[in-house]
């Protein structure tokens, strides 16, 4: 029972913070929007006609791009949320948790669940307007995409928590963010199909968890994909579990020296 309460308390905290911090909300939306506008508008004007559609499995470029943009928003928000554990340490709140008699595992799990919910909300905020500009998006794909988004968020939120626990000071925050986010986004198949890449290049995409999130959401939203939905889901679920366990392990051992 006490476990459930600290889980709820920490999730509650993340949600409250999310709805209060409008600037963070906008901050993590800017990147996906910029990418959508620059890549989307540019390429969709160039890649018109049925020949071009062939390249993207028979759908228009904007619809091809949209799922990747949604996952990008969820990914960025959840990673930022996880790494921001470092601010909890810097601004002291972490001590309030460490000195409490409650389970640390459930505390960090609650935090991850709360953050993942808000990350999915970010994805939803992006996805809704995309329905108006990307004609091939299917409405029935909405809810399943958000579910996949939630698992994706758990994965990257836990990864963020693990990274933060290894950081000694918040100075590296920005650096880590750009070092991790940009490569993962570019190597995820969000912008072009990975089917025709040479084998050695594909390997790089396959070791990126985001690839599977983009691929599965593209299948759910447009019916097109490069990989297999079931495979995507198995990979994402296992990764989220592994990263969760790692972050809980690391957090449990937190002391302040």
């Amino acid at each position: 029972m006490n476990e459930a309460r600290i889980l709820y308390a920490m999730a509650y905290r993340q949600l409250k913070r999310y709805f209060r911090a409008k600037s963070r909300l906008l901050g993590t939306l800017i990147n996906p929007l910029v990418f959508f506008l620059f890549f989307g508008m540019g390429w969709s004007a160039t890649l018109r006609g049925s020949m071009a559609r062939q390249l993207f499995g028979g759908i228009d470029y904007l619809s091809f791009l949209a799922p990747g943009i949604v996952m990008m928003a969820i990914f960025t928000a959840s990673l930022v949320g996880g790494i921001s554990v470092i601010w909890d340490r810097e601004f002291g709140f972490l001590k309030e948790v460490l000195v409490a008699p409650a389970s640390r595992a459930y505390a960090i799990l609650g935090r991850a669940l709360g953050d993942s919910l808000t990350s999915v909300l970010q994805g939803l905020i992006i996805l809704i307007p995309l329905y108006f500009v990307a004609p091939a998006l299917k409405l029935e794909g909405l809810v399943p995409t958000l579910v996949v988004g939630f698992v994706t968020a758990l994965t990257f939120n836990s990864l963020g928590i693990a990274i933060a626990s290894k950081m000694r000071s918040p100075e590296g925050f920005q650096l880590i963010m750009s070092l991790v986010t940009l490569p993962l986004i570019f190597l995820s198949g969000a912008f072009y199909p990975i089917d025709n890449l040479p084998q050695y290049a594909k390997v790089i995409f396959y070791i990126n968890p985001l690839t599977f999130a983009v691929d599965s959401s593209r299948y759910l939203l447009t019916g097109k994909s490069s990989l297999n939905l079931i495979l995507d889901l198995i990979v994402l679920l296992s990764l989220s579990l592994i990263f969760l366990i790692i972050s809980i392990r690391i957090f449990k051992e937190s002391t302040i020296d």
Partner: peptide
């Protein structure tokens, strides 16, 4: 205070 109370059962 709400969060603290929850954490302390």
């Amino acid at each position: 205070l709400y969060i603290h109370g929850l954490i302390y059962g």
